[in-house]
């Protein structure tokens, strides 16, 4: 009986002629109860940073805490920075994701059952600031300087913006093959600087100090 139903009036997700990459869409302003789980910005400890539970009722905080991470080898570091728009205004509804190697420069095999994973997520606060607690990564594949891959999401960000964080004091930066692809005068936008106890890495979406974003 159902084969007598009229066909859909226009193409949709199921039409083979349209098959291809699903287009990206913004996370919008209301992702806070759906994406940042408890502790998603703490890659080495058991704190609950990364989420913003003040933005929704406690009984709707359904995202579980992750399992304990155990001992993680390496130098603990804090990474923090502000996400800023074209006018220098704080972006209070952005979400930052990071992906990084461990202290030995290895990307973690997901089949292991404990320890460091190297993937995190942090919401920005009302001041536009995000913060991660992690370890300093090692050199990757014997060529790349220690770095952290970063994805930027937010209201008004239709598709993820990809960038990288490098460390100011690392001699390996000079020979990094990815930094070498970036115009010299813009390279400093990818360099985190030690400010107090934290590595400071602002992300400027547009303007004079616009962060370098990558086509990956």
């Amino acid at each position: 009986m159902h084969d007598q139903v009229n066909p859909a009036p226009r193409l949709d997700n199921q039409d083979p002629v349209l098959f291809g990459q699903t287009p990206s869409q913004t996370v919008g302003p209301f992702f806070h109860y759906g994406l940042p789980w408890k502790g998603c910005a703490d890659l080495i400890g058991d704190s609950e940073i990364g989420a913003r539970p003040e933005l929704f009722p406690a009984e709707h905080y359904v995202l579980a805490s992750p399992t304990a991470k155990g001992e993680v080898a390496g130098e603990p570091i804090v990474i923090e920075g502000a996400v800023l728009d074209a006018d220098g205004k704080a972006v209070s509804d952005a979400m930052i994701e990071i992906w990084q190697a461990d202290a030995a420069g290895r990307y973690v095999d997901g089949s292991s059952h404990s320890g460091f994973i190297g993937w995190g997520r942090a919401s920005t606060g009302e001041d536009g600031v995000y913060r991660f607690v992690t370890i300093r990564p090692g050199r990757v594949d014997d060529q790349q300087a220690p770095h952290i891959a970063i994805g930027v999401f937010g209201r008004g960000v239709i598709k993820r913006l990809a960038t990288r964080l490098y460390f100011e004091d690392d001699a390996a930066n000079a020979a990094d093959p990815i930094l070498a692809l970036v115009p010299a005068e813009r390279r400093q936008t990818l360099i985190a600087r030690k400010v107090g106890q934290a590595w400071r890495f602002d992300i400027v979406l547009q303007g004079d100090r616009e962060t370098v974003f990558f086509d990956i």
């Binding site: 992906w99 990288r164 547009q206 086509d215």
Partner: peptide, 23 residues
């Protein structure tokens, strides 16, 4: 999107171990 999208061209990079791995 107007104040929140980059104006500089994206820098195209090769896929290294960083881009081809994940959790």
């Amino acid at each position: 999107t107007v104040p929140r999208s980059p104006r500089q061209p994206l820098v195209r990079i090769p896929h290294t171990l960083t881009e081809t791995t994940g959790p």
